[in-house]
Nucleic acid binder design. Structure first.
Length: 929
RNA sequence: GGGCCUAUAGCUCAGGUGGUUAGAGCGCACGCCUGAUAAGCGUGAGGUCGUUGGUUCAAUUCCAACUAGGCCCA
């Protein structure tokens, strides 16, 4: 007889092979058709809220691993908190305006763009954004992310655009917005301002000049040694842009560097950094010189020198950005022609002077060079300097220089009029810093990071010279040049935008944009011109609290959590803080959680040039999105997140382990009907009760990890539970009982009761992470009362104190410690071929005293636990194995006596005692009936 | 160059307030099983705790510098 037929072996149609690539789309379809997310929203009604407000990704290109990481993390948090009883309504968003899209559109339009109006270009931009929004939406949904994807918030929607203008209106009302000059990249050929991203760098050779500026202040007060030479003392500067010399207003020294005053024959006394004296002297061809004095850069502050070309003075200032890499250690400062020059110039109250027009030609202010194209004026300037004896040296210098991405011509830095939000007006900076302290930052260093950024940043430049964005709603009087900026006008414009979108600004004449009868406040003229600039896109996303959260009762402000990459301390967290504090007086978020960046297996960032990029699609196509979700959960996201072939392979193996553990449980629940077969806790076998105890501990640890937003802890906990607690111990031991005993015996039903509870809990614990697989397991769990149609609609399990028993725990931890020692002894027998399977063995334990009575007490359990055929316990002597939990025990093993039962494979000494089943052991005979 | 952050076995993670032979799982090696089988079980080998100094009776744990890497600036 084939006794295998009489066993209760596992049966399930839950496949071992996941085939996630095929299965996931089916599950997605089911969620879609079943309206699962809408059921989640419905179930959330009236619950306590936890709103995670989505930071809008940019609607350009396909998603990459970074965006996938971000959305999956959000999804894990949102799904887990919903299961833990919160209303976690999740509304995804997209950031739609801005340069990158406009760029792409310009490239695809090519020459055609020349004849197009801004409104036409904007139409193409909108279509482009819509296209990628749709692509990304599909890609995000493919990851298993739940949210209201049908109606996301988009910054280019008419009402969002209107809100942007309204929020600007609030700043205008306060008087926080002002117009001032600031240097920007300027292409004289295209006659347009360029953004950082529109600039490319090429190597180029430019003239580099050393120039001396004669001091007009009396230095002897600061450096007494120079008293005899005070009328012939000069500071030496070095520059690679001679054409900016006419705009020079200052010379910068480093406060900490040491400077030297050097007496030379041909050039008088020259001041330069001490370390650079030898190289400068050799460059100038001066062999005979004398260092008269050395002093710190601070000694020079507020002194003055005469401009080498014009009859005005140049101020000596201190700047931390001065270096000793090249030149003289004294830096020529033209606040109208450089970013650093501008910042330091502002700090010293210098004029932002840039006497250059749109075509890159000097204006009439510049005596001697008016009308000259700046790059062509280099030689003129050098000649003029030479004529006046100011030029110390001229040479060619190779360096990388910015070029226009479009016309490929060299560009200049030129100050132009821009709009700013003041950080000081209305105490915005101070209030923002206060608001930061009231927010919970995870990790905590995020607070210091954003605090010092806000503390040190300049005023917010909100204007951009571009087409694809929301216009700054201000006007200029064509008659007298007066600016018309008012909150009322902004709100009037907003109403129009609500109906027609921001396009209205570009298609309507001014009179349609302004309230009727608007006139210039200064000259009462009615010929008003609209502003051409648009607002910085960081302002767009920055006001999402107003455009999205305030308006939607499902959300509300402040929101519970923002969750983005740590780059957003400078980006969205920052801009939205300023906007919200500026208009509402408080931060729009309660908690800000940041994650690191995706890097390769060596910790290096992903870049095309390194060739180490991986697209989410590659992982999805090969392994499934579930592996990506597991990847996100497996690592501490507060640091950088690594990915490599090895990491993915490990994840796949972990996934299989979790899946197989669940499959084995499901297979053994065959024929188990919870409503009929559940065994009351008190009647369950103690090992099963112990398994439930361990599961309760898992539940409480996993819950805590979800509450603390630490999915990687869950990954470790769940994996260890499956491998150590379940597979290697409980499930392995259980096989005998499940297979050998009668289908409806108490022993088997007790085990099934435990398995049912465990698999039901485990599935829900992993659901937020393994969203697809948990759903698939859930389907295969036997039906029970109130079983939700989707695991994502079910509740997160809570530890049940009735299923916990600390006494049992201690007793079983001792048994497990013993088991480990027995395994080692059995491995010895295996090595010398005494046994193969552990069932071939009989284990003999010796102990005395308390340990002996413990062993005698549990003796009846041990053959099962060791998966051996027989266990003998006797009082006796060592050699002891000493163990803290165990006590002193001696373990021996030998081949089990008797004959191997063909049914249960245990060695038995009672084979043949049953008349009806003479080949099998007594235990098996009793189970066949 | 500046600010912030990270650095424990091949991989992913543990290691309150410094104190015996630094842990787990995976992977790897070897073996077992063939009634979870493109599965399961057991045993074992892997770490100068990034480097160098310092504080201390004692440092993976505190301090500093450096190196490598990341984010943001310049």
């Amino acid at each position: 007889m084939d006794y295998k037929e009489t066993l209760c072996l596992p049966r399930t149609d839950f496949p071992m092979k996941a085939q996630l690539v095929q299965k996931e789309p089916e599950i997605l379809r089911r969620w879609e058709e079943g309206g699962i997310y809408h059921k989640i929203i419905e179930a959330s009604q009236g619950r306590r809220k936890f709103i995670l407000h989505d930071g809008p990704p940019y609607a350009n290109g396909h998603i990459h691993l970074g965006t996938a990481l971000n959305k999956i993390l959000k999804d894990i948090i949102v799904k887990s908190l919903f299961m833990m009883g919160y209303d976690t309504f999740y509304l995804p968003g997209w950031d739609c305006h801005g340069l990158p899209i406009e760029h792409q559109v310009e490239i695809s339009l090519g020459e055609k763009i020349a004849g197009m109006s801004k409104a036409e270009v904007r139409r193409h931009c909108r279509e482009y954004a819509e296209r990628f929004l749709s692509i990304q939406r599909d890609e995000f949904k493919r990851l298993g992310v739940f949210g209201l994807w049908e109606e996301p918030y988009v910054t280019m929607s008419y009402d969002y655009e209107a809100t942007i203008v309204r929020e600007l209106g609030r700043f205008i009302d306060q008087g926080s917005i002002y117009r001032a000059r600031k240097p920007v990249y300027w292409c004289a050929t295209c006659q347009t301002a360029l953004a950082e991203a529109e600039v490319e760098y090429h190597d180029q050779t430019t003239p580099a000049i050393f120039v001396r500026f004669r001091l007009t202040s009396d230095v002897s007060g600061r450096v007494p040694e120079l008293a005899p030479f005070k009328d012939d003392t000069h500071v030496v500067i070095w520059t690679t842009t001679p054409w900016t010399i006419p705009a020079n207003l200052a010379v910068a020294f480093h406060p900490d560097f040491t400077y030297a005053a050097v007496r030379t024959k041909p050039y008088g006394v020259l001041i330069m950094a001490e370390d650079l004296v030898p190289s400068c002297m050799s460059t100038f061809g001066v062999t005979d010189y004398e260092v008269l004095a050395v002093f710190k850069g601070t000694a020079m502050e507020h002194l003055k020198a005469r401009h080498p070309l014009y009859d005005r003075e140049s101020l000596f200032i201190l700047a931390p950005f001065v270096t000793l890499d090249a030149g003289s250690g004294c830096v020529h400062i033209a606040p109208g022609h450089g970013e650093e020059d501008y910042e330091i110039g502002k700090a010293y109250g210098l004029e932002i002077y840039a006497p250059v027009d749109n075509e890159g030609r000097f204006t009439s202010e510049v005596e001697g060079f008016e009308g000259r194209y700046v790059f062509e004026a280099n030689d003129d300037v050098n000649r003029a300097l030479k004529d006046r004896g100011a030029l110390l040296h001229l040479s060619d210098y190779d360096h990388s220089y910015p070029y226009c991405w479009r016309c490929k011509n060299a560009i200049i830095f030129r100050s132009t009029n821009q709009w700013f939000i003041s950080l000081e007006h209305a105490d915005l900076r101070k209030k923002a810093l206060e608001a930061i302290t009231k927010v919970r930052w995870i990790p905590s260093w995020g607070k210091d990071r954003i605090y010092s950024m806000i503390e040190n940043r300049p005023d917010w430049c909100i204007s951009r010279q571009r087409a694809w964005g929301v216009p700054i709603p201000v006007f200029y009087c064509r008659n007298c040049g007066e600016i018309l900026a008012s909150g009322d006008v902004a709100r009037h414009v907003a109403e129009l935008f609500e109906k027609e979108g921001a396009d209205a600004w570009f298609v309507h004449p001014e009179k349609d944009l302004l309230p009727e009868g608007t006139r210039c406040a200064k000259c009462s003229g009615d010929d008003l011109a609209k502003e051409e600039d648009i607002v910085d896109v960081w302002f767009d996303s920055g006001v999402s609290y107003a455009a999205v959260c305030e308006k939607d009762p499902r959300l509300g402000v402040p929101v519970d959590m923002y969750l983005e990459g740590s780059d957003q301390h400078r980006g969205w967290f920052h801009s939205t803080l300023l906007a919200s504090v500026g208009t509402r007086g408080e931060a729009p978020y309660r908690t800000v959680l940041t994650h690191g960046f995706v890097v390769d297996g060596e910790g290096r960032k992903m870049s095309k040039s390194l060739g180490n990029t991986i697209a989410p699609q590659e992982i999805i196509d090969r392994y499934g999105a579930e592996i990506l979700r597991l990847w996100v959960s497996a690592q501490d996201f507060r640091n950088d997140i690594r990915i490599s072939q090895e990491i993915v392979e490990r994840l796949v193996e972990t996934y299989r382990r979790i899946r197989n553990t669940a499959r084995f449980m499901l297979g053994n629940l065959w024929g188990f009907d919870p409503s009929r077969d559940m065994v009351p806790y008190g009647d369950m076998l103690e090992m099963d009760r112990y398994a439930l105890h361990v599961t309760q501990e898992l539940i409480s640890r996993v819950r805590r990890a979800y509450e603390e937003f630490e999915p990687y802890v869950i990954y470790q906990l769940v994996h260890n539970f499956c491998v150590v607690d379940m597979s290697a111990f409980y499930l392995d031991v259980l096989k005998d009982r499940l297979y050998v005993f009668k289908k409806d015996s108490l022993a088997r039903r007790s085990a099934q009761t435990a398995l049912f509870r465990i698999v039901k809990d485990l599935t829900r614990l992993i659901a937020p992470i393994l969203a697809f697989t948990a759903e698939e397991i859930w389907d295969h769990i036997p039906g029970f009362e109130h079983k939700a149609e989707s695991v994502h609609l079910s509740d997160m399990p809570e530890p049940d104190p009735h299923l916990m028993d600390d006494g049992l725990k201690q007793r079983w931890e001792r048994i497990l410690a013993l088991r480990q020692e027995v395994s080692k002894v059995l491995e010895g027998l295996r090595k010398d071929k005494t046994i193969g399977h552990s069932l071939d063995a009989c284990v003999k334990l010796r102990a005395s005293g308390e340990t002996l009575s413990f062993l005698q007490d549990v003796q009846g359990l041990l053959a099962d636990v060791f998966i051996c055929s027989k266990v003998e316990v006797e009082e006796g002597e060592g050699p002891w194995i000493q163990s803290e939990v165990l006590g002193a025990v001696a373990v021996e093993a030998h081949r089990a006596p008797g004959v191997k039962c063909p049914r249960c494979w245990r060695y038995a000494e009672d084979i043949g005692t049953s008349a009806s089943h003479p080949e099998i052991c007594g235990r098996c005979a009793s189970q066949i009936g």
